[in-house]
Write a protein that binds this DNA or RNA. Structure first.
Ligand code: FES
Ligand code: FES
Lengths: 141, 141
DNA sequence: AATATACTTGACTAAAATAGTCGGGTATAT
DNA sequence: ATATACCCGACTATTTTAGTCAAGTATATT
């Protein structure tokens, strides 16, 4: 039960973007160097962030990415959804009437996992990128 | 970001155990048939549950497993810990001073994942096996 | 005593998910 | 022109998870 890097990297990179924001876009190269994330991997991640309107891109020699909204209008859940890191706790298909393991009814633990999923999504809905960079002078990178 | 089957199976099997509890132990074969979980996989899981004192075993022809405590004294977190399904949200080692990706300080997202971990563990601490079997007559298996 | 049942244990393999890379693009400021 | 930096799909390697196998041991029943 481990969180994946892709979601973590996406949030890290966007936090970096929010922190160093100016009137000029920021290149992935800069983020890669600052955050220690592979540039090629970042490209893959930002493609999705762009498709989902979290960031906007500028091509060419002084190009890069900028946030598409204010940092505190971008929820962590938006970011995770954009990179396909949705939380999935249950073993059965959510809409189908069938249970997990091919059973006909929902299993006895179904509600538990369902509640957990709500609990986690709730957390991600309440947090936004702005929350992360509030204490800019903290001992963080 | 998917929950693994091992933890889910462990909780399912124990809920089954709690539900069909009597003065006699219950064999894994029965649980396997009822819950549609591979018998061999269940054996592996129950070994860990036994080592962690969640269940007690009885060998021989009428053998099987029984809960070691009352169902409502067994927290979901106990079960997940027993089968090594601890939640791990952060990318850095929790005790070391170093951050993730080999950085010297904690990264900007560190607190977020740390809070999330607390949030999830909190959920698992509040729920117990007894909660799951309260509505025994529900439309669940 | 023989037998069938069911737990015990460690190692092993298969499958799936994740992490990360590669190659060959296109747009644009200088 | 040229260097920079985004764009995009496909590919491979790595790691984790899921599940199996083989060879036991203990015990109730006949
Ligand atoms: S988790 Fe939904 S039926 Fe088992
Ligand atoms: S998650 Fe702890 S330092 Fe990045």
């Amino acid at each position: 039960m481990k969180l994946s890097n892709k979601g973590r990297y996406a949030v890290m990179a966007l936090a970096d973007l929010a922190k160093f924001e100016s009137n000029k876009p920021i290149s992935l190269r800069d983020i890669s160097l600052r955050q220690g994330i592979s540039l090629l991997y970042l490209e893959q991640i930002f493609l999705k962030l762009k498709k989902n309107k979290i960031v906007v891109s500028a091509r060419g020699i002084n190009g890069g990415y900028s946030l598409n909204k204010e940092a505190n209008e971008i929820k962590i859940s938006d970011v995770l959804n954009a990179v396909d890191e949705k939380v999935k706790t249950i073993g059965c298909s959510k809409d189908s009437k069938k249970g997990c393991n091919g059973k006909l009814a929902k299993c006895i633990t179904h509600n538990l996992w369902d509640e957990l999923e709500l609990h986690i999504n709730d957390f991600f809905n309440k947090k936004n990128l702005g929350d992360l960079i509030k204490g800019k002078n903290e001992n963080t990178i």
